[in-house]
Computed example of a mutant assay.
Amino acid sequence: MLYFITIIILLIILYMSLKPKKKEKIIPLEKVVIPTLWHQILADNVLFYKKLTHKEQQLFCAKMVYFLDVTNIEAIHFKLEELDKLLIAASAVIPVFRFPTWHYANLNTVLIYPDYFDEDLQFSSKTEGRNIGGLVGTGRFENQMILSRKALHLGFQNKTDKGNTAIHEFIHLLDKADGVIDGIPAALLDKQFTIPYLQIIHKEMEAINNDKSDIRNYGGTSEIEFLAVAGEYFFERPKLFKRKHPELYTMLEACFVK
Results as ranks from 00 to 15, higher is better:
Thr36Cys: 14
Phe60Ser: 08
Phe67Met: 03
Asp120Ala: 06
Ser17Met: 04
Asn131Lys: 01
Lys79Ala: 12
Ala187Leu: 06
Ile195Arg: 13
Pro100Asn: 09
Tyr233Cys: 03
Ile27Arg: 04
Ile8Phe: 05
Lys85Gly: 15
Phe97Cys: 03
Pro20Thr: 07
Leu42Met: 09
Val46Phe: 00
Lys239Pro: 13
Ile88Cys: 06
Ala92Met: 03
Arg237Val: 06
Gln57Ser: 07
Gln199Gly: 09
Met1Val: 15
His168Gln: 07
Ala186Thr: 09
Trp38Gly: 14
Asp190Leu: 10
Gln122Cys: 13
Leu189Val: 11
Ala43Thr: 15
Glu236His: 02
Ile27Thr: 06
Ile171Trp: 07
Arg237Asp: 14
His103Thr: 06
Lys55Asp: 15
Asp120His: 05
Lys85Pro: 15
His245Val: 13
Gly129Cys: 11
Lys258Met: 05
Asn72Asp: 07
Met251His: 05
Glu128Lys: 10
Glu82Thr: 09
Phe123Asn: 02
Ile146Gly: 15
Lys176Gly: 01
Tyr218Phe: 10
Lys25Ile: 00
Phe156Asn: 02
Glu225Leu: 13
Leu154Ile: 07
Leu240His: 10
Ala90Pro: 13
Phe117Asn: 04
Phe234Asn: 08
Lys21His: 01
Glu82Arg: 09
Ala177Asp: 11
Gln57Phe: 14
Phe193Ser: 14
Lys150Glu: 12
Tyr233Leu: 05
Leu107Tyr: 14
Glu30Lys: 08
Leu80Met: 02
Lys31Phe: 05
Met16Ala: 00
Ala230Leu: 09
Phe117Ser: 09
Ala151Leu: 13
Tyr197Phe: 00
Thr250Tyr: 13
Lys203Ala: 08
Phe123Met: 08
Tyr116Lys: 10
Asp214Asn: 03
Asp44Cys: 12
Ala187Val: 00
Gly179Phe: 02
Val257Phe: 09
Gln40Met: 01
Asn45Ser: 03
Phe60Asp: 06
Asp120Tyr: 06
Lys79Cys: 13
His202Ile: 05
Tyr15Pro: 01
Phe241Ile: 05
Lys244Thr: 04
Pro35Phe: 14
Lys203Leu: 10
Ile41Phe: 05
Thr109Ser: 04
Val110Lys: 03
Ile200Gly: 13
Gly231Thr: 14
Ala62Val: 04
Thr6Glu: 11
Phe60Ile: 02
Leu52Ile: 09
Ala43Ser: 12
Ala228Gly: 11
His172Phe: 06
Val136Thr: 01
Pro185Gln: 08
Ile76Val: 02
His168Trp: 12
Ile184Gly: 14
Gln122Asn: 12
Thr127Tyr: 01
Asn158Thr: 01
Ile88Tyr: 12
Pro20Phe: 01
Lys176Pro: 11
Ile112Thr: 11
Ile195Lys: 15
